[in-house]
């Protein structure tokens, strides 16, 4: 497959525009930096480790807060480590959880080694095969606004094909206890 062309920072900034009360979970690595660069907020829960956890953290959160929208934003490597979560989430058939995978076909944190998506794995097809009724792949900047709206309203699995270039590091807080307590305070009150 040809390389993705979208700039990851611009894509995430577009998807997280006007977040409102959106609850966001990011996977370790690039998507945590991208979300931090788009604007740190207590309703962002950044994973800095526990690779493969992002989608399942999103599921637990979405089950707990059925009246709120939850968006999981992660990378292809992080999603690949927790592929089973796509089946687990589909089995719950929740309306308020969406997952967007920024796919550059690379393990960006460790030297940009090619990942499985650069070697033939189609994550949107995997999601469909796991039972997701709505899955799509977006590769053009002009489609990001439509994707933003869909991610806020549908139980959607989306692959966003980004360019492999690394973006400057923007480091949001990484103390897990701080991230946990500020998230719960913002969501549940003191």
């Amino acid at each position: 497959m040809s390389e993705g062309q979208l700039d990851r920072r611009a894509a995430v900034a577009a998807l997280l525009r006007d977040p409102g009360d959106l609850l966001v979970v990011t996977g370790l690595g690039g998507t945590t930096y991208d979300a931090g660069a788009a604007g740190d907020r207590p309703e962002n829960f950044y994973l800095w480790g526990a690779m493969g956890a992002a989608a399942m953290v999103g599921l637990g959160l979405a089950l707990a807060r059925p009246a709120r929208r939850v968006l999981v934003l992660t990378g292809d490597g992080e999603m690949l480590m927790g592929l089973g979560a796509l089946a687990t989430i589909a089995a719950q058939a929740l309306p308020n959880l969406a997952v967007a995978v920024l796919d550059n076909g690379r393990f960006g944190e460790t030297g940009a080694q090619l990942s499985h998506t650069a070697r033939g794995t189609d994550l949107a097809a995997v999601a469909r095969g796991c039972g997701w009724g709505r899955a799509c792949t977006v590769a053009a900047a002009g489609d990001l606004e439509d994707l933003r709206l869909r991610l806020r309203n549908e139980p959607l699995f989306a692959v966003v094909r980004i360019a492999p270039e690394e973006a400057p590091r923007v480091l949001p807080p990484r103390d897990g206890a701080l991230l946990h307590h500020r998230f719960r305070a913002a969501l549940l009150g003191p």
Partner: peptide
């Protein structure tokens, strides 16, 4: 391991 992450998400949401 999915269950460990599920429990963390549940707790973040108050469950």
């Amino acid at each position: 391991e999915e269950g460990v992450a599920l429990a963390a998400g549940a707790w973040l949401g108050g469950d």
